[in-house]
Simulated assay, not measured.
Amino acid sequence: MITQIYNINANNSTLVLIWIIGVFPLIYGYMSTPIAGLCSLLFYLWIGLLYSERTGLENLISMKDLFLISGIAVHFSGILHSLAEKAKHAEKTF
């Protein structure tokens, strides 16, 4: 609704990034595993939208490789969550 009011293109990857930034603190505030899952799904959605709207990325890297690299980054994020006691609830999700 807000994008319609301000005439913003709804297929914009920046909107998904703002959504991720809004959801991310809730992972640690509520210590919720489902919210961590939502955040990781939104991350992959953001990567896909970013790749589809930036035409120069197709020349640099393929989409499969980009998702592989982002999957490895999310995996290592889970490993970092296992190091802190307060963040162990999000370890398996990431």
Rank of each mutant, 00 (worst) to 15 (best):
M31D: 10
K92C: 05
G37R: 10
S82C: 02
E85L: 14
L60G: 01
E91N: 06
L15Q: 04
I35R: 05
Q4M: 00
S77K: 02
N12D: 14
F43V: 12
Y51H: 02
G37F: 09
I79T: 00
G56V: 06
L50Q: 09
R54I: 07
I21T: 05
K92Q: 06
T33M: 08
L38V: 15
G22P: 14
S40F: 07
G37L: 11
E85I: 12
G22D: 15
G48H: 13
A90E: 09
G78S: 14
I2Y: 12
S32N: 13
M31A: 14
A84S: 08
K88H: 08
W19I: 14
K88P: 09
L60K: 14
I8L: 15
Y28T: 09
W46K: 04
V74F: 06
L66Y: 04
L15F: 09
S32G: 10
F43T: 09
L50N: 05
L57I: 11
A84Q: 09
L41P: 03
Y6C: 06
P25I: 05
L60S: 02
I21P: 00
A73W: 03
L83I: 09
Y28I: 03
A84V: 06
T3F: 14
S52N: 15
F94Q: 07
L42A: 11
I61G: 00
M1D: 09
V16S: 03
T3L: 09
K92T: 00
F76N: 05
S62W: 06
E91S: 13
E91H: 06
